[in-house]
Amino acid sequence: MPFQEIINIVLPLMIVASAVIVVALKDLLAAAIALAVMSLLLSLEFYMLHAPDVAIAEAGVGACLTTAILIFAIKATRRMEDGR
């Protein structure tokens, strides 16, 4: 199955790329969006590795709840990483 191997090579690289973006971005809201993308791709990777239980958990938690909590926290504090 060469297709499966291609997916298993491309997806982890994209996950690492999005993690790098999360750390590099100064705007915390954009970082939260990139974190949502990362968890989305992570869920797809779990799905491809034949772990649908974990994929559902990561989908439910990462797609909605983590982003929601982060955005509430950003709203209560401030949006930029440094600066007043």
Partner: peptide
Amino acid sequence: LIKIAIGISILESGVNL
């Protein structure tokens, strides 16, 4: 501090993977 929390979350994703 929020970036640090995000970093811990990423670390944990790595462990899960």
